[in-house]
């Protein structure tokens, strides 16, 4: 049987999360088809078809699929379900929204946010904010899986899969898209950035956050992250929150500035390759996971850091 991987995309471009989830999907050992559900999303199919290991791309293009709402996308996947025994998506907010809806329709217990494929039915997934790792084996006839993309490498380009059109399974009268406010930024995305600099409550205001964090990020070509405290206080937009309930990241370098290191924050960044912590409290728990700790006032050292790099 075959695995169906739901593509994460913006209708114009394929998101890198798909290539990472593909690596997990291929590890299951079956042929992988990629489903591109969207509107005017032809370019996404072309990109997906080039990913190495993809056997076929299914393209469902309809207005009702434009915003990837759970109701129509889950209905579409359900209409294709007879041909597949495994359904995979990246654990993005889109994947997390859609996949459990599909799973319940299939009477399957979803395996959420896997970090490792042990074998075709056995997976590792973090629980308790990553303080424990569970190895679970599913006994369901079909499998529904979301993938924590920070722990899988992206599949390379090199394929040339055929693209086949499928029909949308219809709209939904019960839900409708109203609008969106997406953050505009030329900066790298948190999920794919090599360097991330994050600010916490210590920044004190959104002006200070801009003034102190942004120049260093610019110099490093880094993405910007934030703790929940900084986001709640309005210093940074919500989509920058790193942590158990925000984004999970694993860059080459993570620089935590004025962040205490609560378990919920650590859950989102402790798999980074190198961690730097700048905090004026030498007892701050963030130092327990930091490779390099600088006990200092961030308002003094960040401008200095910007000059030094």
């Amino acid at each position: 049987m075959t695995t169906l991987l739901l593509a994460e995309h913006s209708n114009g471009a394929l998101n890198e999360a798909t290539a990472k989830a593909l690596t997990a999907a291929l590890a299951l050992g079956e042929e992988v088809h990629v489903l591109v559900a969207g509107a005017n999303s032809g370019d996404v199919c072309t990109e997906a078809a080039k990913l190495d290991g993809v056997a076929k791309v299914l393209h469902a293009d309809a207005d009702v699929l434009e915003h990837h709402l759970a109701e129509p996308v889950a209905a579409l996947m359900l209409s294709l379900a007879d041909n597949y025994n495994t359904f995979v998506a990246a654990a993005t907010t889109t994947g997390k929204n859609i996949m459990p809806r599909l799973a319940a329709k299939l009477d399957v217990m979803q395996v959420s946010e896997i970090i490792k494929v042990v074998d075709a039915t056995t997976f590792e997934r973090p629980i308790y904010a990553g303080n424990a790792i569970q190895t679970v084996q599913t006994s369901d006839a079909k499998k529904v899986i979301t993938v924590r993309t920070s722990t899988f490498a992206a599949a390379e380009a090199g394929g040339n899969a055929p693209i086949e059109t499928v029909e949308a399974a219809g709209g939904s009268e019960i839900s409708a898209f109203v609008g969106e406010e997406l953050s505009q930024s030329d900066r790298p995305e948190l999920a794919s950035a090599k360097i991330i600099i994050s600010g916490g409550r210590a920044l004190g205001s959104s002006e200070k956050f801009q003034e102190v964090i942004v120049p260093v990020a610019d110099k490093l070509g880094a993405a910007i992250g934030a703790s929940r405290a900084a986001v709640d206080a309005g210093y940074a937009p919500n989509d920058l929150q790193v942590g158990q309930t925000g984004k999970v990241v694993a860059p080459e370098l993570y620089i935590a500035c004025g962040i205490s290191g609560a378990i919920q924050h650590l859950a989102g960044m402790k798999d980074s390759k190198v961690i730097v912590a700048i905090n004026k409290d030498e007892e701050a728990p963030i130092f327990q996971v930091a490779d390099y700790g600088l006990v200092a006032d961030l308002f003094d050292v960040l401008p200095e850091l910007e000059q030094a790099i």
Binding site: V108, M109, V111, T122, P126, I127, G130, N131, A132, I133, Q134, T135, V136, Q137, T138, S139, D140, K270, I275, E282, F287, Q288, V289, A290, D291, Y292, G293, L294, V295, V301, E304, L305, A308
Partner: peptide, 22 residues
Amino acid sequence: RLKVLKTTEPAGRQAGVKVASV
């Protein structure tokens, strides 16, 4: 539907070093 085969500690991280200056 899911059988929990085991529950383990995540790979630990050692605290590194403190640096004195930028």
